[in-house]
Design a protein around this nucleic acid. Structure first.
Length: 684
DNA sequence: ATAGGGTTAG
């Protein structure tokens, strides 16, 4: 959730404006009329009839049923095979693709070059390169396209060595071959080799500048952060008269967005003659990446008004921005729009939906979308597992992880970050250790720095410092800031001053500008009564000009966003909120709540020196939520920093007194308060 | 028919 921390600030006020733009656009969308099913008379299942049915199913993308029909036809025409394979390819439906391939083999159909190339492409796109290789090996004749397809499939999976070998072995090379290889290098973070290859191509081929190749070369310069090379290529593009092409411009825009300025990128965008959906998507994503999400959303709604049809890439980008900012309402509207446009539940846009709902604290919807996916991909599994872990349902997270294993999908290193954090949130230390070891022993993956950070988090939180230190000493890479921060957090909980100093020292070295370390250290010293050290830390902060980030909480009520700062009195309902808090505070004390007035100790890393705890931003937002909504309505509050100990305690009482479900998403995780308890079990 | 834009965590 790094983005919330770094990005939220001023843009919140613009949210409302966007909301209005959205509302007008969404209401102007008309429902696509559903065709009523044509009345059909009973017809015998002749071959022609079956083929017709099959065509219809293909048009409706009903793949599974189509395969069933296919199995009833002995010798279908070649065009049907071709259509089916293409459909499997588009939907990344490997098993269905295999069925079609099997059918081809059994029916004795001798597949020509085109069908074989289609099969190759299907297997490559589905990531099953072993199958692709088999098809390739069995082909009696191969053309350049067969070579290219296989090669670009190896390259796309990051098997650059194998791709390069094919590239060397190829009888001849064309623009496709070069571009596939160059973009492979770019994709897998080897831009230097990409550029070298590009220069080689320029020397070895006397041909016109190709728009795809040149785009890959631009992407390589962007990845190297080398604006000079990029500008040089830009110049040559202009001279070659390629400067009206949307493909080239997309790449240029991307480059200027990444290593130039977003304004430069926008200038390029505005110059594109035929802006296609890729250009729009790239520009929108640049805004989001730059943290200028209000402009991103604005451009998105402009796109919607333009009549150009967004695709999965567009949706994925927008949904991700919604996820980052917990903009569930917008996310829902985008979801609705996807449904209206008939989006494909196989695609990665569906996984972006799962992610968005998870991040907005709506795991129910995340699960619903997930269940609607015929073949959930790894990203969806991981998003759902992580969603459960962060939402205080670690058991479900682990349950889904076991289901994932049963489904035959292979987890990756990110999945394990989710699994380990589920164990952390549930306090399942030994189970977590077991999973940690299984990463290497059972799944044959390498431990990443993140895995180490997770396991240190797990051990340190439960006070098992000796084991944590043993692991740190033995780990094969240098501990990173996340690991040290986890260790420091554990030290704070258990008051381990000695180890805390060690962790803080490492953190001051790695990121001296991060206020969190200073504040946590000050808290630890304060707990130990070392006020002299507290003062030293303060001075150190002043000297280095490190400033605490202001705490900020917000809540959506009736599709309007209300933002609160600490001690905020600018809200129109401020008077009511404060009166309500006073009343509430009396009830809370009656129930046994004791305010934690020692702010140095408990104000974890946020807000200014605020004496009066009842004015912390999350309390204001919660109080406003309660008075602004009917009794019983669940309250959902978002905060840009970690929630403070006192507020956490207070909200527990509040949830009981007002009998409401209160969810607080802080920068780390979700807290679901209900009937006096929090789902985090005081673990955060 | 193979080539530009996308997602998951700490």
């Amino acid at each position: 959730m790094k983005s919330i921390n770094s990005r939220i600030s001023h843009s919140l006020s613009l949210f409302h404006k966007n909301r209005a733009i959205f509302a007008s656009w969404f209401s102007s969308q008309t429902q696509i009329h559903k065709h009523s099913p044509r009345k059909t008379f009973f017809k015998p299942n002749t071959k022609d009839n079956l083929i017709n049915q099959l065509h219809n199913l293909c048009n409706q993308k009903r793949l599974k049923e189509a395969i069933q029909i296919l199995n009833q036809i002995e010798k279908p025409p070649a065009s049907l095979y071709s259509t089916l394979i293409q459909l499997c390819c588009q939907n990344r439906a490997l098993n269905e693709g295999k069925s079609v391939h099997q059918h081809i083999k059994i029916s004795g159909f001798s597949a020509g070059l085109v069908i074989c190339n289609r099969l190759l492409d299907m297997y490559a796109k589905c990531g099953s390169l072993a199958d692709a290789q088999n098809v390739f090996d069995e082909m009696s004749e191969r053309d350049l396209c067969s070579w290219n397809t296989l090669m670009s499939g190896y390259a796309k999976m990051g098997m650059l060595k194998e791709a390069n070998k094919l590239f060397d072995e190829m009888p001849e090379r064309d623009n496709f071959s070069w571009t596939a290889m160059i973009s492979g290098y770019v994709r897998f973070d080897r831009p230097k080799e990409a550029l070298e290859l590009y220069r080689m191509k320029e020397m070895s081929m006397v041909s016109k500048l190709n728009k795809f190749t040149v785009s890959s070369a631009i992407a390589a310069s962007a990845a190297m952060g080398c604006l000079t090379t990029g500008k040089e290529i830009h110049g040559r593009i202009t001279r070659a008269g390629l400067d009206l092409d949307e493909v080239v411009w997309s790449a240029l825009m991307d480059m200027y967005g990444k290593c130039g300025s977003i304004e430069e990128a926008r200038r390029v965008f505005d110059k594109i003659v035929d802006r296609d959906i890729v250009s729009w998507t790239a520009m929108i994503d640049r805004y989001f990446e730059d943290g200028r999400w209000e402009e991103g959303f604005e451009l998105f709604s402009e796109l919607m008004k333009s009549g150009i049809r967004p695709n999965e890439f567009t949706f994925a980008g927008v949904l991700n921005a919604c996820a980052d900012h917990a903009a569930e309402e917008i996310g829902k509207q985008v979801h609705g729009c996807m449904t209206r446009l008939g989006f494909n539940p196989f695609s990665f846009a569906a996984s972006a939906l799962v992610h968005m709902y998870s991040k907005c604290g709506n795991v129910e919807n995340a699960k619903r979308v997930f269940n609607g996916m015929p073949l959930p991909d790894l990203v969806s599994w991981t998003s759902l597992i992580t969603g459960y872990a962060q939402n205080g349902q670690p058991e479900e997270a682990l349950e889904y992880f076991e289901l994932l294993l049963k489904s035959g999908t292979k987890p990756d290193h990110i999945t394990f970050v989710g699994v380990l954090s589920a164990c952390t949130h549930a306090g399942l230390v030994d189970k977590g250790l077991e999973y940690f070891h299984s990463i290497k022993d059972r799944h044959g993956l390498t431990h990443t720095a993140d895995h180490y950070a997770c396991i240190i988090d797990l051990l340190a939180r439960s006070g098992r410092f000796q084991e944590a230190e043993n692991i740190i000493v033995k780990m094969p890479m240098k501990p990173d800031k996340f690991l040290w921060a986890s260790l420091l957090g554990g030290c704070r909980i258990h008051g381990n001053l000695e180890l805390a100093e060690k962790a803080a020292e490492a953190l001051f070295e790695i990121e001296p500008e991060n206020p969190a370390t200073y504040v946590t250290m000050a808290n630890i010293y304060a707990t130990a009564g070392r006020w002299d050290e507290v003062a030293k830390i303060r001075k150190k902060m002043d000297d280095k000009g490190v400033v605490k980030k202001p705490g900020l909480s917000w809540i959506e009520v009736k599709r309007e966003l209300h933002v609160f700062l600490v001690g905020d009195t600018t809200h129109p309902k401020s008077k009511e909120i404060n009166e309500f808090l006073v009343k509430l505070s009396k009830r809370m004390r009656e129930e046994g709540y004791v305010p934690n007035t020692n702010f140095v100790l408990h104000d974890v890393e946020e807000e200014q020196k605020e004496q009066n705890l009842s004015y912390h931003s999350e309390k204001l937002a919660v109080a406003f939520g309660i008075i602004a909504t009917p009794p019983g309505t669940p309250i959902k509050v978002f905060k840009n920093l970690r929630t403070c100990v006192d507020c956490h305690n207070a909200i527990k009482y509040i949830s009981k007194i007002v009998d409401r479900k209160i969810t607080v998403r802080d920068s780390n995780r979700f807290h679901c308060f209900e009937d006096g308890n929090c789902s985090c079990r005081d673990y955060w």
